[in-house]
Design a protein around this nucleic acid. Structure first.
Lengths: 165, 165
DNA sequence: TTCCGTGCAAATCTTTTGCACGGTC
DNA sequence: GACCGTGCAAAAGATTTGCACGGAA
């Protein structure tokens, strides 16, 4: 595979195929610290969500999170949304718009993990990918635009191999 | 302004700043033809929506369309959604996810008009932009990815000049 | 003891659907 | 005259909010 465009096939969720987190321990620690620093108390529901997100390489919807947690620790959907909102405000989690009527959330990766998404219109699978050339184009472009760019989001849509077969 | 990154400041809607359509007449014609070819009958509501979209350089939400039309010809929101869905199926209109809880729609431009979006997190304004380098990066990348890419969507988020001031 | 985190239930808001009427073909 | 396009009202979903209780600090 080209060194500049990598995607990882191992599936970790029905909804989002991707590798399990590498170096995710850092994120979990960082998250706990940030929450404490923000003066937040601990709570079981949030711990469960953090742990789940930490093991996820790609974006999940609130409902997928609720379902995934159902077996180990029932967390109400309202709490899932509240927790995600809180994490988003602290910059620990980001929204991903895949054009599927539901917002997806994933932990904010360090530079090394920065990626975007491929969405199959057939089965709805979401896969992460990253590309240096694309990032270069984005950052160069960001300087020529009438907006102080702080984030960017890229979604490629098409048909995955399974669906094409 | 750089020749490779252009944005146009003239505002045509509260929600989406951009130039009025140039060469839009082609799109309107094309749309009418496609609809006829698909065996659809004419209808006032749809004509009003088509005309509005044809004069819009950038993406609108269903509700914005309903509001914009209110003065000249009341079109029920259900019809707006139905019409947009129909136009999307015929490839005349495309959805734009700006991460604002509502889907936006805009007419599918010819190659010359292809663009992406800048979204200000402060005031919510949406502006179109286009960049050749970006498009090159996308098309080269599309060949190295495990998906037959048919569309791509790019959103840059940040703070617009007015909000930064 | 104080106050936050969480669950539950109700409210919101966008988008979809069912049904009936009027216009297009 | 047959059937589609449209409006209106209700339904369906996702997300948010109000409130009360139990646990963290």
């Amino acid at each position: 595979m080209s060194p500049t465009a990598r995607t990882v096939p191992t599936t970790s969720t029905t909804a989002c195929a991707g590798r399990r987190a590498a170096g995710g321990r850092d994120w979990l620690e960082r998250a706990e610290e940030a929450l404490t620093a923000a003066g937040r108390r601990r709570g079981e529901a949030r711990r469960a969500v953090l742990e789940l997100l930490n093991n996820q390489a790609c974006a999940l919807t609130a409902i997928e999170i609720e379902d995934a947690l159902r077996t180990q620790r029932r967390v109400s959907r309202a709490s899932v949304y509240r927790i995600l909102e809180e994490l988003e405000e602290l910059g620990l989690v980001q929204r991903v718009e895949t054009g599927q009527a539901m917002v997806r959330y994933e932990r904010v990766a360090d530079q090394h993990e920065h990626h975007h998404h491929l969405v199959c219109g057939g089965c709805g699978v979401v896969m992460p990918f990253s590309d240096e050339g694309l990032e270069r184009a984005i950052s160069s472009l960001s300087e020529r635009v009438p907006l102080t760019v702080s984030e960017h989001e890229i979604v490629l849509r098409g048909e995955c191999r399974d669906c094409a077969a």
